[in-house]
Design a protein around this nucleic acid. Structure first.
Length: 480
RNA sequence: GGCCCCGUCGUCUACCGGUAGGACAUUGGCUCUUCAAGCCAGUAAAACGGGUUCAAUUCCCGUCGGGGCCA
């Protein structure tokens, strides 16, 4: 059964530039583009905007694809590369010249620079002075055949260009402040502005959801649509993500790359849930929800235009929530894959299944696993201070451990409850404080003062390994 | 410098003309073999100044502050 509704015509796109590792800001915008398309049974397109040759990075596209795959965003068309569509842009730029909406410009860099500075001195926008706009088109065309040129848009001298932003409402600009934007560069590549407009139109994009840094270029785009005689898409400008300092997200304060989050052990579901809450809010005030629920409930009018701070602490909390919600089995699997891929550790999955309930409430990211539970499969080392310390002499600590050894060696029922019962009994019998005994044992067995519950650890570790750890600790204490 | 966007607890936000609710963080407590998790309680906000209105956080203007774009 096929139900075609008007809304099924909706088409969105993600248009990242392959100039570096994909940024969370891209994930943020991708999320809403993807969800909006899904909600409307429309299409989501991936387009690689690689016309900036100076900043092009060959490995970036692969990273973008990997990041999107990790986040779970599939695309219906693409990836399309603008660099493979050069003739199309050229053709369209020429078309604009024909329609007298664009013109050739032959000005040198030096002259342009001088014009800019003069304009600025007068307190005006640093714009091009439209010198070449006055050249007779026929003369210009002839000249263009021989030498270098760029093609510029003929921006109307008067009037106002405005659009209804889906998030912010009416936004308008006086045409008089707009520059005669370069459309085609002297190297034959289109500028961003020409390429987006041509592509968005040719691909039938109905909704352009992008970051607010594009607001000031939007009037140029609208003017281009008008020059071509095309109907512009709807626009929604999302707020940009900020650091606590209100500056743009930056590496100095933590991760900003999508793949870095993956590597640190964030779950994509958690990252996405967190991102969804920046700007948007669930109508029932829910904090934890799936992307499916976002798809169902998303309403662009509910997006706040204020640039939100990317609060890594809340992200961590949320990731912890998702980890806790995972079953032991699932968490064990995820840990296995993660440790293998990023730490080169191939841990037996059965052991991982046993450990995962012990760490589930104690880690916020998969990357924290090793620090908390590495002792299960790595060797441990102690110092005397770590073992004794806490106001206890090495002698008395050693005495306790010796006693523990004797009791444990006899124990055949190596189960959590049994072990706890034994050790509590021992403490009571000897008049030792059980918290102190347990801490000593914890350090002896795990090599750490902070660990999952002691007796569970001992059970998982097994009798043999537990005893050899205690023996090892004892040796350290007996050294002078 | 010009243009544009934004301004509710520290942070993310809700209500959007009848004075503020939730979440993270934080503080205290409970629980307790460490650390967590969990539960309970607490602290904490409408940048400022003018309008409009019976009434403004909510609408309008200005100021200030933050950010973006163009170089």
């Amino acid at each position: 059964m096929k139900v075609e509704k008007e809304s099924s015509a909706i088409k969105t796109r993600l248009a990242p530039s392959p100039t570096g590792a994909p940024h969370v800001g891209t994930a943020y915008v991708a999320l809403f583009n993807w969800a909006w398309a899904k909600q409307n049974h429309g299409k989501f397109i991936l387009r690689i905007e690689d016309t900036d040759r100076a900043r092009f990075l060959p490995q970036a596209e692969g990273q973008i694809l990997e990041a999107l795959a990790w986040l779970g965003f599939g695309w219906d068309e693409g990836p399309l590369r603008q660099s493979e569509r050069l003739p199309i842009y050229l053709e369209h730029a020429n078309d604009l010249i024909k329609k007298d909406h664009a013109y050739y410009c032959f000005c040198s860099e030096a002259r342009l620079e001088e014009v800019r500075q003069q304009a600025q001195k007068k307190g005006l926008s640093p714009r091009y002075d439209r010198f070449c706009r006055k050249i007779d088109p026929k003369v210009a065309a002839a000249r263009a055949k021989k030498g270098k040129f760029v093609i510029r848009l003929k921006v109307p001298e008067e009037g106002r260009t405005s659009f209804a932003d889906l998030i912010r409402g009416e936004i308008g600009f006086e045409n008089s402040v707009l520059d005669d934007q370069v459309l085609l560069k002297s190297d034959g590549y289109p500028t961003y502005h020409l390429a987006v407009v041509v592509d968005d139109h040719l691909m039938g994009i109905t909704h352009v959801l992008r970051g607010e840094e594009w607001i000031s270029s939007t009037p140029k785009h609208i003017l281009l649509y008008q020059a071509f005689g095309w109907e512009p898409p709807r626009f929604a400008h999302f707020p940009v993500l900020r650091e606590a300092s209100r500056a743009k997200l930056s590496k100095r304060h933590g991760s900003v790359g999508i793949l870095e989050f993956k590597e640190e052990g964030y779950l994509p579901e958690a990252l996405l849930n967190f991102l969804a809450l920046l700007g948007w809010s669930h109508p029932q005030g829910k904090e934890i929800f799936s992307v499916e629920e976002l798809v169902e409930k998303l309403d662009l009018r509910r997006i706040s235009p204020t640039a939100p701070v990317f609060d890594r602490e809340k992200l961590d909390w949320m990731n912890g929530e998702y980890i806790r919600a995972l079953g032991d089995r699932k968490l064990g699997e995820k840990l296995g894959e993660y440790l293998k891929k990023y730490r080169g550790l191939d841990i037996d999955s059965e052991i991982l299944q046993k450990i995962s309930p012990l760490v589930r409430e104690r880690i916020k990211k998969l990357g924290e696993f090793e620090g908390l539970a590495g002792f299960f499969f790595n060797d441990v080392a102690w110092t005397k201070e770590e073992l004794a310390g806490r106001g206890e002499s090495s002698g008395s600590a050693a005495e306790k451990l010796r006693e523990v050894m004797t009791r444990l060696e006899k124990e055949d029922d190596w189960k959590t409850e049994r072990l706890e019962e034994r050790m509590r009994g021992l403490a009571q019998e000897k008049g030792w404080k059980s918290p102190e005994l347990f801490m000593l044992l914890r350090v002896a067995v795990t090599g750490q003062a902070v660990s999952p519950p002691l007796f569970e650890c001992m059970e998982v570790l097994g009798k043999e390994k537990t005893l050899s750890r205690i023996a090892g600790a004892l040796k350290i204490l007996e050294l002078d």
